[in-house]
């Protein structure tokens, strides 16, 4: 009888804990819902959930990234850039985030913004050909051909 009471109390405890979790951690549950939607490509439905979460102060890096991604996927590049800028501020030194932000600037046509990021990344990692190529392309888009040519020659290991 004692054992049975113990089992029942444990089950009740587990259920109560779960219920309390669901009540106290609603944001995480919402996050999970939106994350699941985004994984299935339902960015339009995921976006307002991420947006609400961030507005409520739920600003984990993953939330900011997925918010930016959801804006990007739904065609709002300006809002995507804003989200990635917040993410970059929250992730100092994360070159991957910086690259994504620069890519968004490029897509929006702000090649100067993108070039500034590529310059900074190259200063840290001068041998990175991928970043060097992106910088050369951004400079080309800006009409700064001579600088772009120097970058391309450097990528090819040639002297200017």
């Amino acid at each position: 009888m004692k054992v049975l009471s113990f089992v029942i109390s444990i089950i009740i405890l587990a259920l109560a804990t779960t219920a309390a979790y669901r009540h106290l951690k609603q944001d995480w549950l919402l996050y999970r819902t939106a994350e699941d939607l985004s994984r299935r490509g339902a960015w339009r439905q995921a976006n307002p959930i991420f947006d609400d979460l961030v507005k409520k102060g739920f600003r984990t890096k993953d939330t900011l990234r997925l918010l930016g991604k959801s804006y990007e996927e739904t065609g709002d590049l300006a809002a995507a850039i804003e989200a990635f800028r917040k993410l970059a501020a929250a992730s100092p030194g994360d070159a991957g985030v910086e690259l994504e932000l620069a890519g968004l600037y490029d897509r929006k046509g702000d090649h100067a913004g993108a070039a500034a990021i590529y310059h900074a990344l190259l200063a840290k990692e001068p041998e990175n050909r991928s970043v060097a190529l992106r910088l050369a392309r951004a400079l080309t888009a800006l009409g700064r051909y001579d600088e772009a040519i120097l970058r391309y020659r450097a990528i090819l290991g040639e002297k200017p």
Partner: peptide
């Protein structure tokens, strides 16, 4: 946030592609 936050993705840019872009520029 990312499985690999390193910016080294796409390092394997072939020279011929860079040269093509250089020729255009």
């Amino acid at each position: 946030g990312r499985p690999d936050a390193s910016p080294v993705e796409g390092q394997e840019i072939p020279d011929w592609m860079a040269r093509w872009e250089l020729a255009r520029v």
